[in-house]
């Protein structure tokens, strides 16, 4: 039997003394798209951070298997090299480092070979254009002075350039206008190649309207409390989390 791409088993995650996730299980196979929903503060971003290896979050129990190997003790760069990518909700500003140099270094780090400049630029500029980012952004300092929308597009640009096996998108649409959400959704669809997988964290039905979704999970009580198909998105969008059995806030 083929191994799952990502298999999370009985995961406990702490931030400082506080237990955020407890006994969480989640399996994602190659080629699948999962959507993760849940009220604010239920730990959706914590789950993303734990899979990526954010050192501010500690996994106190359980396993994260990627291609069958437990990666819990690996630093984020090792996980990136395995093919895990996280689109950040609020990516850091890095003054003095251009977007282009950063992405080229990242491709070099992940693939083990820094791409040839001319060819890299050509491909990068084409991807930028498809996301509605002008070429001038290549020279901009990474995320410095970027609007909310530009930051999200920059994250999707990185996703398209690095082409990971698993992409976790943490609110890739928050703060975006209707047109920008469409551009981001199109970007996400361009990333799909049949073999890679997605975990999309969102509150926004519109982001996933044109994306083929296989599973929808609701995070509650520190674990995956409910799993269904894409109809769950509509139920929650229309009726809130009360419509899926949660107590009123």
């Amino acid at each position: 039997m083929k191994l799952p791409l990502l298999e999370i088993q009985k995961l406990n995650v702490n931030v400082g003394e506080k237990l955020i996730l407890h006994g969480l299980d989640l399996t994602i196979n190659a080629g699948e798209t999962h959507v993760l929903m849940g009220r604010n503060g239920t730990g959706k971003s914590t789950l993303a951070a734990a899979v990526m290896g954010n050192p501010a979050f500690s996994v106190t129990d359980g396993k994260i298997l990627f291609d069958g190997e437990n990666i819990v003790s690996e630093p984020p760069d090792k996980r990136a090299k395995r093919g895990i990518f996280l689109s950040f909700q609020n990516p850091e500003e890095i003054p003095g480092v251009s977007l282009e140099n950063f992405i080229r270094s990242a491709v070099g780090a992940v693939s083990g070979e820094t791409p040839r400049l001319m060819r890299f630029q050509k491909e990068l500029y084409a991807k930028m254009e498809s996301l509605g980012l002008s070429k001038a952004y290549a020279d901009r300092e990474l995320n410095v002075g970027f609007s909310g929308g530009e930051k999200k597009k920059s994250e999707i640009l990185q996703l398209l350039t690095l082409s990971p096996k698993l992409a976790i998108l943490d609110e890739a649409d928050s703060g975006l206008d209707v047109d920008a959400v469409r551009v981001v959704a199109e970007g996400i669809n361009r990333y799909r190649n049949g073999g890679n997988a997605l975990l999309i964290i969102t509150h926004n039905k519109r982001l996933v309207e044109d994306i083929k979704v296989d599973f929808v999970h609701v995070l509650r009580d520190k674990k995956i409390g409910l799993t269904g198909g894409r109809e769950l998105i509509d139920t929650i969008s229309d009726g809130g989390f009360g419509a899926v059995g949660e107590a009123a806030e």
Binding site: N54, P55, D77, L86, A109
Partner: peptide
């Protein structure tokens, strides 16, 4: 962490 998540040591 952000840069490491893109593969940089």
């Amino acid at each position: 962490y952000y840069l490491m998540s893109r593969g940089l040591s």
